[in-house]
Amino acid sequence: MQDKIKLEICCGTTCYMLGAAELMTIEDTLPDAWKDRVDVFAIPCMDLCTREDIGRAPFVRIDGEVMGNATLETVHRALSKLLPIEPEEV
């Protein structure tokens, strides 16, 4: 069994207003094959919104790697690099 991927979502004010509210529903959008492979956590605040070098809120962290301007789509894309959906066995 592989280690689960840790997906952390910032719930701070700025992130929440700029899209974290939607990101927090990501569990509902994960393909079944990923559901047991990703652990989603809400973080009160990552204190990243005042940093200008790493993008804009909302922020997530995927296995410790910070990602700015996060949307459901970009997070899915980032996860897909770590979790390719294996083709169903024929």
């Binding site: 910032c10 719930c11 701070g12 004010t13 509210a21 927090m24 529903t25 569990e27 989603v40 956590f41 809400a42 973080i43 009160p44 605040c45 990552m46 204190d47």
Partner: peptide
Amino acid sequence: CGGTTANIITRELHTRVELDLKMVK
């Protein structure tokens, strides 16, 4: 009230915050 505030307090008091994502709905 406040994420950064919570971070400061968890750091100083060596405790942690539990946010339940199920609450989001």
